[in-house]
Design a protein around this nucleic acid. Structure first.
Lengths: 213, 213
DNA sequence: GTTATTAATGGACGATCGTCCATTAAATAT
DNA sequence: ATATTTAATGGACGATCGTCCATTAATAAC
């Protein structure tokens, strides 16, 4: 017996999300260019006209899929932030840990992110949701670094915070690319260690090696 | 009068490269998924059958285009390396400067790189050439960092060199992603400055701020 | 119970896809 | 000059693309 009881023979919400899931599966397994309406409805086990019914067309479905992927990403980031200690360095490390965790940085996520990136350049709708590590996350990290930077004797601690934010997020982003191209040799632990090592170089007092575990 | 004299009415090599150029133009302007045989031959001003004649099919043409893009990238990197001073830190900075130069990191390159990245996950032929900053560049940077790291009192300087290589190349890669998503606010100078700042954190004696210009 | 509304179906449609080949033209070999 | 080889053409082909709608089924309203 299934845990879920099928309450009725029609279920628009379930079908809607089934189409999104099937779309993400198709992009992951077949590739973006090879993701077709026929392939999607076959995966979802639904009828041909349902895409037009629920989304208006294929392109809008792709945007909805990009949005769903984006939401999943931030849900996981937020989950890590919630349990993190209330210090700026703990906040930064929570973002690093979350972004480089197996839950987020896996074969599926890496492929999907890069597939949407490739499409974002010509599809404004997808572009809207193809930037993980976007303004929202950037603000959180920036705020934490602003606090940290004030403890150091530098001319302009705000510039230091800005640079740390830009550099760290770029590094995380690049690690996703590295994972995509070399999934077998990539080590999540090493990646986290390396990010921490660079942070220690900027803020020796806040990112001791033992605190990076 | 044109500088080039058309020596004959047939020119297989010129047509071959015209097809590759048209393919890159199409991916850049129309997107990867929207790049079609019809669009390519229209751009190149050549006949329909020429793709099959010179490449055997569309997919092989795409691989050839990825290869051409990859070659262009390394030609520019090598150009910078040739004029760099013969110290390991100059070598590293030459790679950073080249990778973040307007000549390499521009709208076209960023879009093309990410388009190929997206396709690489399902096309082994493209994957072969979709990794800029691959083994060749990695070896050069790694060697430079090995030399630099020996000047510092650390338990295992080779691990430090490995971490610096991985982190720096990831950061450069991530900056390309940042440029792709925010081409208007991106600053090449800031990016270089930030990369240098992180390097200074790891190797204070080798990456003084003034040497990063 | 009857009617109105919403969900779901699946085939038909024109458009476009990439491949292929018969044909023509140019260059080379004899 | 003639024959052979190579380059280039562009239309025909079947396959597949995404869209759309007439039809049927399920739910909600009355």
């Amino acid at each position: 017996m299934s845990g879920l009881v099928k309450t009725s023979k029609r279920n628009p919400e379930a079908n809607r999300s089934a189409l999104i899931r099937a779309t993400l599966d198709s992009i992951y397994e077949d590739g973006f260019a090879e993701t077709t309406v026929s392939g999607i409805i076959k995966r979802a086990g639904l009828s041909r006209g349902m895409i037009h019914l629920h989304f208006g067309g294929k392109s809008q479905l792709l945007v909805a899929a990009a949005e769903a992927f984006n939401i999943e990403y931030y849900a996981e980031i937020d989950r890590h932030l919630l349990v993190a200690a209330d210090t700026p360095e703990a906040t930064v490390m929570a973002v690093v840990s979350a972004d480089l965790s197996e839950a987020l940085l896996n074969e599926r996520s890496a492929k999907l992110l890069h597939a949407f990136r490739g499409a974002a350049t010509t599809d404004a709708g997808i572009a809207q949701f193809s930037g993980t590590r976007d303004e929202k996350l950037r603000t959180i990290v920036r705020g934490a670094f602003e606090e940290i930077a004030q403890a150091y004797e530098v001319r302009d601690s705000s510039i230091l915070a800005r640079d740390a934010t830009f550099g760290l997020l770029a590094m995380l982003e690049g690690m996703w690319g590295d994972y995509l191209l070399n999934p077998t040799v990539f080590s999540h632990g090493d990646a986290k260690h390396i990010a921490c090592r660079f942070l220690k170089g900027l803020f020796p007092d806040h990112f001791e090696t033992q605190r990076c575990k």
